[in-house]
């Protein structure tokens, strides 16, 4: 079942269009930065954007900061919202379930397909933005005397130097954390997708939840509920670039997303398990 869902995901051209759009935004920003060399004022603009002018090897971090707040959640919500409701709208859900396929397994397979999409999308953003950063913004002097082109050490948020190998590890950690963060979005959209036959409705419902959460995160009056909001720890991946790494919010963010996944997947299962399938 999982293999089928993964194959279905990677055979759809729209998935590649979405990933290309995700990669395009950092590329456009890099063009402007490389041609004007005007960094955002200190403390303003996207995270890491002022730092990438001195070393483009850090551009993947800046690119993730650009796509994470809006583009990536929208993409995940649209695809996850389509996962069950899209099958229902297309009239394929009935045939899918006629096969000896458990509904719980179908839900889990749909969620795993979302994980695969997020991993693929973020990896694509990291790779393309790394190449964009290194080629367009430059990396300063090579530390290997030109034998092998490696970027020089980049500066962490704490002012310490991060070697290329360590940077790769921290980017891997970032990819993992953002994937977990997007699991919550996928779970919300997947649950809503079991409630309605409208893929658009499910995606909009998930996005409305996220926008509400983002608004409350910035509201001092909502301080008491902030630790439980799905977007509260989204930016905690930035803490991978501090020295030493600040694990506090990363751990809490990952834990919170797993709670959301457990609850919403449970709710999706409770609703979908014996739901009448009319289409």
């Amino acid at each position: 079942m999982i293999t089928v869902e993964l194959a279905k995901l990677f055979k759809r051209p729209r998935m590649y269009v979405i990933v290309a759009l995700l990669c395009l935004l950092p590329f456009i920003v890099a063009i402007f930065l490389a041609t004007t060399r005007i960094p955002p004022p200190p403390g303003q603009g996207g995270a890491f954007l002022s730092a990438v002018l001195s070393n483009g090897a850090l551009y993947p971090a800046a690119a993730l900061a650009l796509v994470l707040p809006v583009f990536l959640p929208v993409a995940v919500a649209v695809l996850a919202g389509d996962s069950i409701a899209g099958e229902a709208t297309g009239g394929t859900l009935r045939y899918l379930l006629i096969r000896p396929v458990g509904r719980t397994r179908l839900l889990v397979a749909k969620l795993i397909a979302q994980v695969a999409f997020v991993l693929f999308a973020i990896a694509a953003v990291v790779v393309t933005s790394y190449l964009t950063g290194v080629l367009m913004l430059g990396t300063g002097e090579s530390t290997t005397g030109g034998v092998v082109l490696l970027p020089p050490d980049v500066t962490s948020l704490s002012g310490d130097l991060i070697s290329p190998g360590e940077l790769a590890l921290r980017l891997l950690g970032t990819i993992g954390y953002i994937t977990i963060s997007m699991l919550g979005v996928a779970a919300i959209a997947l649950f809503l997708s079991t409630l309605t036959d409208s893929a658009l409705g499910a995606a909009m419902g998930a996005l409305a939840t996220l926008v509400t959460s983002q608004v409350l995160v910035t509201l001092d009056a909502a301080e008491s509920v902030k630790p439980y909001l799905p977007t509260r720890y989204w930016l905690a991946w930035i803490d991978f670039f501090r020295d030493p790494i600040l694990w506090r919010d990363i751990e809490r963010g990952a834990g919170l997303q797993f709670v959301y996944v457990a609850v919403l997947l449970g709710a999706a299962w409770a609703n979908f398990k014996t739901k009448d399938i009319g289409s």
Partner: peptide, 11 residues
């Protein structure tokens, strides 16, 4: 002592 902000830090 580090003052932590989104995307930056003052130590």
């Amino acid at each position: 002592v580090d003052v932590l902000e989104a995307g930056t830090e003052r130590g």
